[in-house]
Nucleic acid binder design. Structure first.
Lengths: 234, 234
DNA sequence: CTGTTTCAATCAATCGATTGACTAATTCGA
DNA sequence: TCGAATTAGTCAATCGATTGATTGAAACAG
């Protein structure tokens, strides 16, 4: 049982249930395709609770946006801070930088694919990419840009460029895309591999592949040889 | 004016207008969020034409799926066939393979980002990834798997693995993700770069970045040194 | 004439939002 | 301490508007 400052206000559970249902339904179906009745039923609350707690459907959507930003901030961005610190400590030591990069990539792969809740976040953010709403700036400023800037700094350090060099930013986009591809294109990959679901072993294989690819893009040598590379490096 | 085999059957224009409107609206809003009245208005045709030509909203959606498959088959898969042929010609020559890979990646980047119509296809397919419908197998069998298998063969050849080796498939997923990331995460990248839109110069910069990244992942040396790499390759 | 298209109208179903009644917890003055 | 008043929250019911679908008559073109 939680010990600190627990004030179970009565409506909090209803709010949380609605926001969670909103994350699932909005992310999968899109804003307009989700009926308020479906939200209420999925949350196990009464229809009127939406208007009461959030002022309406759009207010609930904004609340879901806030949850996505908060959860990603708590579970993704700490690793980003760690990356910045570790990069400073590594300095010009490329072997150390390789270790820093590998740990970061592996952490991010685990965070993006190992957490059962992350696909919901990814789907929600993806909707805002293809059909931006008023929530897009909130998501971008809250989570996308901090992440992107940190990876840009990594790419810049590895390639000997400034972190705001356009080439660093584009390389960061490539690196992030490599990871997110496994969260976005999950359905076709499962079919392609003949898998039913991601398992720890399969996630480890994905992580190995992504780490090897990221280090290659960054032109950093892996610490231990766990890649299946037979390609020559002249 | 087109010259060849033009048989402007009367209903064809209405059908085409509806399918095109469906591609735009379904891709941006999702199936359930699009009203038949919105489809008819966007297509500039009467509401009753949907039932007349497609039997209903779902029939129109299937027709849109067919259009997506057909257009991608015509504009993306030819390069896939070319890749297979060129790989056979390159054989074990890694320098030749590098040239083949670079040409393929550059072609795909141009095809995915240089065509104004492609974002519509990407958005539509993306919807089927996160919320699959009966159209998902059509898209997967028609365009996703052929593309994926070709890139898997490329990854396998570069890494000395079988094309159906899980590591080849996962690496192919990484390579495709590198390209598609610029089509999917277009909005945040534009904001990150301070761009308003993709221009030919910017697309060239993206292509250079993706080609460099892909060749690095494949452990192939670029034919000419146009990369910004300062990283050592021991 | 035949196939295509528009148009207005209508159907049952569902949409988001609102209402007033009801319950339960909290607050307050004496 | 007690009981009334207040507040927060939930509930079923209902509102007007819109949904996808369908119809039949009229207009259109080949």
């Amino acid at each position: 049982m939680p010990s600190q400052a627990e004030t179970p206000v009565r409506g909090d559970d209803t709010r949380a249930q609605l926001i969670d249902a909103g994350l699932r339904l909005f992310g999968q179906m899109g804003y307009q395709a989700v009926a308020t009745r479906a939200l209420a039923q999925a949350a196990g609350v009464n229809l009127a609770a939406i208007a009461y707690h959030f002022g309406g459907k759009s207010g609930l959507y904004e609340a879901v946006t806030g949850l996505v930003v908060a959860e990603i901030r708590d579970e993704i961005l700490p690793a980003v801070t760690t990356l910045s610190d570790a990069m400073g400590a590594a300095g010009a030591d490329r072997a150390a930088l390789a270790g820093v990069a590998e740990r970061f990539i592996r952490t991010q792969v685990a965070a993006f694919l190992g957490n059962a809740r992350r696909p919901l976040h990814v789907a929600f953010v993806l909707r805002e990419y293809t059909a931006p709403t008023a929530s897009f700036p909130v998501l971008y400023d809250g989570v996308v840009e901090p992440m992107h800037k940190a990876v840009s700094a990594l790419a810049g350090a590895a390639h000997g460029l400034a972190s705001d060099d356009p080439r660093s930013i584009l390389t960061a986009h490539v690196l992030i895309g490599q990871i997110v591809a496994f969260a976005i294109a999950r359905a076709p990959l499962l079919r392609r591999m003949g898998w039913q679901d991601y398992t720890p072993e399969r996630l480890a294989a994905i992580a190995d592949t992504v780490v090897a690819a990221a280090l290659a893009v960054l032109r950093l040598s892996p610490g231990r040889a766990d890649m299946a590379s037979t390609g020559a490096c002249p």
